[in-house]
Design a protein around this nucleic acid. Structure first.
Length: 561
DNA sequence: GCCGTTTTCGGCCCGACTGTTTTCAGTCG
């Protein structure tokens, strides 16, 4: 996946927003959005191929993209950025506030940021404004609060992308990311990178095109802000302290405090330079040496959160968390029959390339009206999938669907149709604001449906955009365990759903899990690693995760033998 | 602005919900 694709897609999305806000034709807005989505999901690197090959990109958009690749922007975008201030676009990130109202507020009252809007509401300046009643004001304030709580953190996918780009750009002897990124936290505040190399590496770092601002710079540490607004710290460490530095800067702080307390009791000292007894180095080169010297198992970074891992490691009782290599298939993916952008054949081919033993296609069902799914289209897809099976003797193709859980907990099709699927995922896509009791009942009803195998992205949160729904999760987990309904760990990094803490709680209830990519394009299949990160943070083993199981065991779980 | 023809124009994912309105615009998925 080329980063050029993501950058160009982001520019087109921004252009679509600004174009909509400046009163542009809605169909053209959609063209820009569609092209952005297609470019982001395009498997090839658009800086190396003719971007006109991407479906949804015609002559006009191709010219914009080419100019963007040349100089990092295009002139139509420059023009609109002058007309619509950056803060006004940020207004549309407030829930329930779209382009029309944002521009209206800007024109009428000069409101040019979420902060300015909050102030205007508090000062009563919106009173009497057409279309802005008391309820609207209340909703806007709530939306602004949520936005501020999300803060400046980005989701793991964005941070990983930046970190990998930086690592690839620097000629170090040794270089790796540490910090919350290595622990695979779902949101990341800043990126820590450690390197072994010459001091000239710092100069090289500061010259890179992704650097927007140098915050601080010395011989051993440089802090920058990237063009995407993320802070990155690069530290030079001595080769002989590599393990100690990785251990120290990976954290978490709480995990490290526990280790250092243990050291103090033994008269030792643990720092980023090593484990010492007086002046004598006991261990420093590798993390494994350090943990071994402390008389404990090496702790996987994802588990270093002071969640009982230190005690377990001292006793030699750390579970072996699931790895990417353990996954034998993906059980939630889409094609362009609904809202994916790749064909069935392209998705299946890419899945086979990953060496999967099975792969489920789960397009949306009729109750999400915008997807225009019908019984006939579904049956046609099933026939196509069955024909395709002959070409993949080593990968079992499963025909599934992603059902919509209605407010009362029911799903799209009647039982006799559902039983024709190999697997049914069911997810909430609307009515997010139901009361806790209603939402809990809704999930439990879905779990109790014998034809529902997996609850998709259970909390329905979108990091930075939408909070999780409110439910009595313990009651939902108990129902899932009782009914043998798996809960999904949606690996798509802006979802990361279930979140790690809830997944760990669910495990205590005996719930099984399905780690799925929820792919809507070929490159999304790679997001699986983020789902594995969540699972490892939740201490899940292969026994907990149904898509690490051999096909026979999976089919038994699905009741499809 | 894109696309696929009924091949250079006319359609483009469409329905529900919310808060405001008194018949609907805006937002969302």
């Amino acid at each position: 996946m080329g980063r050029a694709n993501d950058d160009a897609a982001a520019a087109l999305e921004e252009y679509a927003d600004l174009f909509a806000m400046s009163g542009g034709d809605a169909f053209r807005v959609r063209s820009y959005q569609k092209a952005a989505k297609a470019i982001a999901g395009y498997p090839g690197d658009i800086s190396r191929v003719n971007v006109r090959e991407v479906p949804g990109v015609g002559e006009a958009i191709a010219k914009k993209v080419e100019e963007f690749l040349q100089r990092g922007s295009f002139h139509q975008l420059d023009d609109l950025r002058i007309q619509v201030p950056e803060g006004v676009r940020r207004l549309t990130r407030v829930a329930t506030l779209g382009p029309k109202k944002a521009v209206f507020l800007y024109r009428e009252l000069g409101i040019d940021s979420p902060e300015a809007l909050a102030e205007a509401i508090r000062e009563g300046r919106l009173a009497g404004l057409k279309g802005f009643g008391a309820k609207t004001e209340e909703n806007l304030l709530k939306g602004i609060e949520q936005l501020q709580q999300a803060g400046e953190r980005v989701h793991l996918g964005v941070a990983m992308d930046v970190a990998e780009q930086i690592i690839a750009s620097l000629p170090a002897e040794k270089i790796a990311y540490a910090g919350s990124l290595r622990r695979m936290k779902d949101t990341i505040g800043d990126i820590d990178i450690l390197a072994v190399g010459p001091e000239t590496l710092m100069e090289e770092f500061k010259r890179q095109p992704y650097v927007a601002e140098v915050i601080a710079s010395g011989n051993l540490k440089t802090s920058i802000r990237t063009t995407r607004g993320l802070q990155v710290d690069l530290r030079l460490v001595p080769a002989e302290s590599w393990g100690a530095a990785m251990q120290y800067f990976t954290g978490s702080k709480e995990h490290n405090v526990l280790l250092r307390e243990m050291c103090v009791k033994r008269g030792w000292k643990l720092s980023e330079y090593g484990l010492f007894e007086g002046e004598t180095v006991i261990a420093s080169k590798t993390e494994e040496e350090i943990y071994a010297a402390l008389g404990m198992q090496w702790v996987p970074p994802e588990m270093r959160e002071d969640g009982g891992e230190v005690r377990a490691a001292l006793r030699g009782e750390l579970p072996e968390p699931v790895t990417l290599g353990d996954l034998k298939g993906d059980l939630h993916t889409h094609t362009n029959l609904t809202d994916g952008i790749a064909t069935l054949e392209e998705m299946v081919e890419a899945a086979a390339g990953r060496g999967y033993a099975y792969y489920a296609v789960t397009d949306h069902a009729p109750n999400l009206f915008m997807q225009r799914m019908t019984h006939e289209k579904m049956l046609e897809q099933r026939a196509r999938l069955h024909r395709l099976q002959d070409e993949y003797p080593h990968m079992r193709l499963l025909h599934g669907t992603e059902l919509n859980i209605a407010p009362d907990g029911t799903v799209d099709w009647p039982a006799e149709i559902l039983q024709g699927f190999d697997i049914c995922v069911a997810s909430v896509h609307s009515h997010f604001t139901q009361s806790r009791d209603e939402m809990t009942r809704r999930f439990i009803t879905a779990c109790e449906n014998p034809d529902v195998h997996v609850i998709g992205h259970p909390t329905t949160r979108k990091i930075g955009k939408r909070p999780p729904v409110d439910a009595d999760w313990e009651a939902v987990f108990a129902a899932a365990a009782r009914t043998n309904t798996a809960l999904e760990i949606d690996a798509y990094p802006d979802r990361a759903d279930l979140p790690p803490d809830l997944a760990r709680l669910a495990r205590h209830h005996g719930v099984k899990f399905s780690i799925d990519s929820d792919s809507h394009a070929v490159p999304h299949l790679d997001n699986m690693r983020f789902g594995v990160g969540i699972a490892r943070r939740a201490w899940l083993t292969t026994d907990d995760v149904i898509n690490t199981w051999p096909l026979d065991r999976l089919l038994t779980f699905l009741g499809r033998t």
